[in-house]
Simulated scan of single mutants.
Amino acid sequence: MEPLNVEHAGRTLRGVLHLPHPNPAPAPAVVLCHGFGGNRIGAGNDFVLLARLLAAQGIACHRFDFAAFGESDGDPADFSVSDQASQLKAVLAQLERNRAIDPDRISVLGFSMGALVAVLAAGDRPLRSLALWAPAGGRLNLPFWEDDWFRDQIREHGRADCNGIAFGQAFLDDLPGVDQFAAARRHQGPVLLAGGTEDGLMRAELIDPYREVWGDRLEEHWIEGMGHGFGTLENRDRMLELSVAFLLRTI
């Protein structure tokens, strides 16, 4: 594991790169994208575990913090989904220039809002494959984000508080223009979509359009009784197992 930071719009996006040892350079690579308010460690250390599992199978893995989260620079008031997609594309571009990485064999795995961002990036540049853990709904979730409680907080304090995570007007202004399904139509590779049967982000109106766009290129896995978080070590290990197996087949 070694530091790999990326400069984007005057901010340092801090991350680490796990390389296989020995490294059969150039190696295929996966970029991991955390969710809203998360970081490159992942919930319950899952991104660290996943990176180690992939490296042991000969796949490099880059974990990074989006701006304003984890250890990366940035102000939460400036956070938006489109800006995160731009950050991810900058990370991918730098990874392509790394001599240890095969630029034609790069995939992305994202959780929740990170999965939404992964789809948007895949619509703008080719990726080998996508692995999506419970992708966020983007503008389809506007009724939740546009609640008067959040808007009143932004008006009064310049930021809103969502379970201890700050966001600002930039996020709300950006969200109506986010169209993940248009981006999904431009991604030509295989896709893993995995989540829990009790996860509100896995409801039909958020998932059916992906089924229509990707058809038989979409591989779905549902874990019975799991919500938006893993809930149990068994669920976490199952998600890691599914993801590693998919990436080994598709990268």
Rank of each mutant, 00 (worst) to 15 (best):
V244D: 11
E234I: 07
N141A: 15
T250D: 01
L17F: 04
I154P: 06
D208Y: 00
C33M: 03
G215A: 13
F246Y: 13
D237P: 00
D124E: 15
L192F: 13
D179K: 10
W145H: 06
R14K: 15
C61G: 05
G158P: 09
L201V: 14
R105L: 12
A93F: 01
G42D: 05
H221E: 13
P22V: 04
G196K: 07
G38P: 04
V6L: 10
P209K: 09
M1G: 12
D73G: 10
P103G: 10
A183P: 11
L201W: 14
M226W: 10
L120C: 06
G158S: 09
G137Q: 04
W133Y: 15
L206S: 07
L140S: 12
R99I: 02
H228T: 14
R236H: 08
A9Q: 15
G123W: 03
G137F: 02
E7H: 12
D124F: 00
R249H: 10
G168V: 07
R52M: 07
R159I: 09
A67K: 02
L242R: 14
A136V: 02
I154Q: 08
A134F: 01
L233C: 02
P28M: 08
G70F: 10
A183L: 12
D179I: 09
R105H: 14
G70S: 09
I154Y: 05
G189C: 04
R185N: 04
F69A: 05
I41M: 14
L88K: 11
Q94S: 09
E156N: 02
H187N: 05
L116C: 08
G74R: 11
N98M: 07
A115T: 11
G37M: 12
E212W: 01
D46W: 02
P135E: 05
V108W: 01
I207A: 07
N5G: 04
V213R: 13
P209N: 11
Q94G: 08
F69E: 02
A134P: 00
R128Y: 00
A184Q: 07
T232M: 07
N235F: 05
L193K: 10
N23R: 10
A184L: 09
V191W: 03
G37S: 10
F111K: 03
W133V: 07
D78V: 06
S112P: 02
Q169M: 13
A56T: 00
R159W: 15
D124S: 14
Y210C: 10
A25S: 12
L13R: 09
W133I: 06
F64M: 13
V91P: 12
A77S: 13
M202K: 03
Q153T: 01
D78A: 15
R249S: 12
D73F: 12
A184N: 08
R105P: 09
D78E: 15
V117W: 01
G58F: 04
L240Y: 11
A166R: 10
P24E: 13
P126Q: 07
L240P: 03
H18R: 06
S82H: 05
I59P: 02
H8L: 11
G74F: 14
V81S: 04
A160E: 05
G229E: 15
R217D: 05
P76H: 11
A136E: 13
E234N: 07
L201A: 10
S82C: 04
